[in-house]
Amino acid sequence: TFVALYDYESRTETDLSFKKGERLQIVNNTEGDWWLAHSLTTGQTGYIPSNYVAP
């Protein structure tokens, strides 16, 4: 799992909003700078900017 370093507000319907400190499970990280992730807090799935999270 990864932890959010910053808050992120989604800009498209495929993005995932999250708050700093939220735990995220990475589903697919082969898309370059945008990873498909599942929030362990909200249960939602969407794309996140990879530079906003850390292991």
Rank of each mutant, 00 (worst) to 15 (best):
Y6M: 11
D15C: 13
T14G: 15
V3Q: 05
S17V: 05
Y52D: 02
E31S: 14
E13M: 10
L36R: 04
I48M: 03
N29T: 14
Y52Q: 05
V27C: 13
A54M: 13
R23C: 14
P49S: 05
G32T: 13
N28R: 09
L24P: 00
W35Y: 06
I48F: 03
E13D: 14
Y6H: 08
V3S: 04
T42D: 03
L16I: 12
E31H: 14
L24A: 00
Q44P: 00
V53D: 02
E31R: 14
N28L: 10
A37Y: 01
L5Q: 06
T30C: 12
K20Y: 05
A54V: 14
E9S: 10
E9N: 10
A37N: 00
R11T: 14
G21H: 05
T14P: 05
Y47H: 05
T41R: 12
D33I: 11
E31L: 14
L40T: 07
W34S: 07
L40S: 06
I48P: 00
V27R: 08
G46R: 01
K19I: 07
N51Y: 11
N29P: 14
G43K: 07
S17E: 05
E31G: 14
L24G: 00
E13K: 11
I48N: 00
V27I: 15
R11Y: 09
W34Q: 07
T1R: 06
N29L: 13
D33Q: 13
K19W: 04
T1S: 09
D33W: 11
G46H: 00
A54F: 09
E9C: 12
G21V: 00
T45P: 01
Y47G: 02
G46S: 01
G43H: 13
S50A: 13
K19N: 06
Q25W: 14
W35G: 01
I48H: 01
L16D: 01
V53T: 04
T1W: 15
V53H: 03
D15F: 13
E22Y: 02
D15H: 15
T12L: 11
G32K: 14
L40D: 06
N29H: 11
S10K: 12
A54D: 07
T12N: 15
G43E: 05
P49K: 07
W35F: 06
L16Q: 02
L24Y: 01
E9R: 07
T41M: 11
V53E: 02
F2H: 07
E22A: 04
Y6R: 13
L16P: 03
I26C: 05
E9T: 13
A37G: 05
G21C: 07
T14M: 12
S10G: 15
D33H: 13
V53W: 04
K20P: 01
G43T: 03
I26Y: 02
E31C: 14
T41I: 11
P49I: 03
N28H: 09
N51R: 12
Y47A: 03
L36N: 02
T12R: 14
N28P: 06
Y47Q: 05
Y6A: 09
E13G: 12
Y52M: 13
A37H: 00
T30N: 11
G46E: 00
G46P: 00
W35T: 04
Y47P: 01
E31F: 13
S50H: 08
S39D: 03
F2M: 09
E31K: 13
A54H: 08
N51L: 08
T42Q: 04
T45G: 05
P55W: 10
E31W: 12
T45H: 07
N28D: 15
F18G: 00
L40P: 09
Y8N: 02
S10E: 04
T1Y: 15
E13F: 09
Y8S: 02
T1V: 15
V27L: 15
T41Y: 11
G21K: 02
I48V: 12
T30A: 13
H38K: 15
N51H: 13
T30F: 10
Y8D: 00
E13Q: 11
W34Y: 12
S39R: 06
F18K: 00
